[in-house]
C-alpha cells in the first residue's frame, strides 16, 4: 500500500498535469481546440506542483501562456479547462479566453497572459490590496525565462521590494523563450542575483526535484507572507517545442534527449519506490486514473456547445451596462432611416 506522503501527492498532481497536456495536445492536433496556439508545460510539472503546494487557498496568482499545469495544481477542474481551451461556453471564460487567457477568480487565478510579462505587475497590485485589506494572502507571478528580459519585471520587482508587499515572483526557467535558448537572450543567467539587487529574497532550485522546489518555495512564500517579498527560479527543461506544432529544429536531438531525462515525474517515482513509500503497481494505478480522468475531459469538451454568436457582445463592460450595437444592426437601422 502506498503511504500518503506529500511526495505521493506531488506525484499525482504532476501526473495529472502531464496527462492533461498529452490529451490537450492530441485534441489540438485533431483540430478540436480553439486557436492556432497551444503551449505545453511538459517537463515543468515540479514547478507547478511544488510552488502551488507552498501556497494557501486564499493566495492569488497570475501565469504566462504556458500555464495549464499551474492552474491544475491550484485546483482547476480539468474538464472546464479543456472546454475553455476548446472555446466552449462551459469553459472557465465562456470560450472567450482559450489556452492563453484562462482565469478563475474563485481559485485566485487572476489570469494567464499572452503578452510576455503582462501578468507580472498584477501581482504587485494583488500584494498591495492584500496588505491594505489585511487578507494575509500572498500573490505569486509565474512566468518563463523569456520574461526575464522584459523591463516590466524589474519595475514590478522594485515596487514589491520597496513597499514590502506579500509578493513572490516565480520564473519557470525552461531554458527557451520560443526558439531562443536562454544564453542567447541574456549574459547573466544567475537570475537570483538580479532579484537580490532589488532587495528580494531569492533562490534558484532544480526543477527535477519537486520536494526541493516545494521546500524552496515554502521558504520564499512564507517570507513574503511575513513582509519579505521574494523570487524563485525553477530550472527545468521544455520537453517539446514552443507551440505544439514546433518541432524544435533549433536544438539538437542529443540536447533534447538529455533534457527530457530531467523528468520530475520519473524522478519522483524513483524516489517513492526507493524510499519504500510506494510501489510500481500503485503508481501505475495513479497514472491510469489520471489518463482516464483527462480522457473524460476531452469527451466533455468535445460534446460541449460553442458559445452563441450574440454572446460576443457580453462582458465588454459590467453586467447592466448596454452592450455594443452590432455592426449589422446599425447598418440596417441607418439605411432604414435615410
Amino acid at each position: 500500500m502506498p503511504i500518503n506522503t506529500p511526495l505521493l501527492d506531488f506525484y499525482r498532481t504532476m501526473r495529472r498535469i502531464r496527462s492533461f497536456e498529452e490529451h490537450v495536445a492530441d485534441l489540438y492536433v485533431r483540430g478540436g481546440t480553439a486557436g492556432s496556439m497551444l503551449h505545453l508545460s511538459i517537463g515543468e510539472e515540479a514547478a507547478a506542483a511544488g510552488v502551488s503546494a507552498a501556497m494557501k487557498p486564499e493566495d492569488r496568482f497570475t501565469t504566462h501562456h504556458r500555464g495549464h499545469g499551474i492552474f491544475l495544481a491550484r485546483g482547476a477542474a480539468p474538464d472546464r479547462m479543456m472546454a475553455e481551451i476548446a472555446g466552449k461556453e462551459v469553459g472557465y471564460c465562456r470560450g472567450k479566453g482559450g489556452s492563453m487567457h484562462i482565469a478563475d477568480m474563485a481559485l485566485g487565478h487572476l489570469g494567464a497572459n499572452a503578452i510576455v510579462g503582462g501578468g507580472i505587475p498584477h501581482v504587485v497590485g494583488a500584494g498591495l490590496s492584500a496588505k491594505r485589506l489585511g487578507t494575509g494572502a500572498v500573490a505569486v507571478a509565474f512566468f518563463g525565462d523569456g520574461a526575464m528580459q522584459q523591463g516590466l519585471l524589474y519595475e514590478s520587482m522594485n515596487m514589491a521590494a520597496l513597499w514590502e508587499l506579500p509578493v513572490v515572483f516565480v520564473c519557470v526557467n525552461n531554458q527557451y523563450g520560443m526558439a531562443t535558448r536562454i544564453d542567447h537572450a541574456t549574459k547573466v543567467t544567475a537570475f537570483d542575483q538580479r532579484a537580490r539587487a532589488f532587495g528580494l529574497a531569492a533562490a534558484m532550485v532544480d526543477g527535477e526535484d519537486v520536494e526541493a522546489v516545494h521546500a524552496a518555495a515554502s521558504e520564499i512564500v512564507d517570507g513574503a507572507r511575513a513582509g519579505q517579498p521574494g523570487y524563485l527560479a525553477v530550472t527545468c527543461y521544455r520537453f517539446f517545442g514552443h507551440g505544439r506544432m514546433d518541432k524544435s529544429p533549433y536544438r539538437s536531438p542529443e540536447e533534447e534527449a538529455a533534457g527530457r531525462k530531467r523528468d520530475p515525474i520519473a524522478f519522483a517515482r524513483a524516489r517513492l519506490i526507493e524510499r519504500g513509500l510506494s510501489e510500481a503497481a500503485a503508481l501505475d494505478a495513479i497514472d491510469t486514473a489520471a489518463r482516464a480522468e483527462m480522457a473524460a475531459t476531452v469527451d466533455f469538451a468535445t460534446a460541449a456547445t460553442a458559445p452563441a454568436l450574440a454572446s460576443m457582445f457580453r462582458d465588454v463592460f459590467a453586467v447592466g451596462e448596454p452592450e455594443p450595437e452590432s455592426v449589422r444592426t446599425r447598418i440596417a437601422r441607418v439605411l432604414a432611416r435615410s
Binding site: A34, G95, H101, M312, F313, V316, P324, L335
Partner: peptide, 30 residues
C-alpha cells in the same frame, strides 16, 4: 445618394472561440 456606411470590426475584444472570432469581423455576407 446615401450615408457613407462603415463596415468594420465589432467594438469588442477578439474572442478566441473560432465561431465568435469569425463573427466579430466583417464577412463577405455582411
Amino acid at each position: 445618394e446615401d450615408p457613407v456606411i462603415r463596415i468594420a470590426g465589432e467594438d469588442i475584444p477578439i474572442p478566441v472561440s473560432p465561431e465568435l472570432e469569425a463573427g466579430s469581423v466583417p464577412s463577405v455576407e455582411l
